[in-house]
Amino acid sequence: MKTTQATTVLFAFWLVLTGSLGPLDLALGVVLSLVLGVWAARFLWPQDAPALSPRQAVRLLLYIPRLLASVLMAALQVAEVVLDPQMPIDPVIIGHRASFSRAVSRVAFANSITLTPGTLTVDVDAETFYIHCLAERFATDIATGDLERRISHVFEE
């Protein structure tokens, strides 16, 4: 299963790189992505693969546009802070406890925090996420647990 996924991704990347459908190119691509896929599944991810059920995959696809919109909002908000001559910031590092059962949801949570306006994940130990906020008002969405629920909805149900 892991090997199939890795091989598929590698072969897609090969198609993008070569950009040709000649028989020799295709054959070489199949052989190379098989070898590398087997290697990756055995040595790169020996224990835990971030496998998603079909329903979770659909939810992930639905989550991506929302994430892109929040990236744009985050950039606009940083632009507002940077271009303001007063620079209205008062940075703090807060600790936020959130428990997830899978590593992939912790990664997604940390990345989503970084991509929401005014917040940046600095460190994670076990269940505490250390978050740097440009000002404390930006942390409300995280403190209320909204973001955490959204991530759980995508990866853990």
């Binding site: 950039a75 632009a79 620079m87 600095v122 740097h132």
Partner: peptide, 29 residues
């Protein structure tokens, strides 16, 4: 947005704040 990222990198007071500007503005730019 690249320009905003550059200004942020030069203007913000410390490393963490600069990382905000660098990651977000450069991603969008």
């Amino acid at each position: 947005f690249f320009l905003v990222g550059t200004i942020g990198l030069l203007r913000l007071p410390d490393f963490y704040a600069r990382t905000h500007a660098a990651t977000k503005c450069d991603t969008v730019g």
